[in-house]
Amino acid sequence: MDFITTLINGLSIGGIYAMIALGYTMVYGIAKMLNFAHGDIIMVGGYTIYVFLNMTGHPAIAIITAIIFCLILGVTIEKVAYKPLRGASPLAVLITAIGVSYLLQSLAQIIFGSAPKMVTIFNFGTKNIGGLRIQISTIVTLIATIIVMIALSLFVKFTKMGRAMIATSEDKDATQLMGINVNGVITVTFAIGSSLAAIAGLFYLMKSPSLTNTLGSMPGIKAFTAAVIGGIGSIPGAMLGGFLLGIVECISYSIPVIAPYTDAIEFLILIVILLVRPTGILGKKRREKV
């Protein structure tokens, strides 16, 4: 029975990782860059929720404001910091992304200080379901992430913009020859990725309500690991990698002997998968044109 609880917890934290990983993987697939500031969008989402929750007292208003704010922030970062570097060396873009990450963390520290803020968004408590003691927030997280992922998959598969995203990730020149503004597609990608990060921030705070300016670092790195394990650039890969990593994490935590080494175990899995399948579990080998 304990194992089932662990599994549900794993799926729930995995869902959060998956949602963040989607932002990494979509941006990588479409803009061909690693947006290392993505994790910090989670933190910004957290602080936005904190501020608006204190101001209005309505969780719904706080959450919606956080999503909109992160969306605008993500799009602005892309326009101001990354777009001028399109065509520049990947290293320059990577360093810029790391710079943006530090900028966001430092701004948060200047504005809110370095003492952790406790944020209680919802008070769901726990429930006994068939003899299992499960936190309601865990179930809510799991259901919400699954809904978001289904919605995103449907969007990519069945809308014009979704197809344009697949086309852009595959072949920018051919996409432009269809009359599609590739920069517009990249903007939409950042908008979606950043909104998902805000939602992930909400669920992450529900799990660990202590808010600091480095809140996004660990889940950001874990989600990036998940995206690479699943195959960076692949949307189903990010989902699979996220859930996989979440389950491994919770199982590892539940075994006292190895619990302290949980993070190491997760990154070890990354190394092993990269050795066995360098493109990740669902990553495709791309035919490079010479």
Binding site: K160, R163, A164, I166, A167, E170, D171, D173, A174, T175, L177, M178, G179, I180, K289
Partner: peptide
Amino acid sequence: MTQVPEGRHVFQELTVYENLLMGAYM
């Protein structure tokens, strides 16, 4: 005006029907 690029450059991951839809995108 549009172009059929050298090496065809169809969208490999989309179906034939979806490729044609991409042509009509605008």
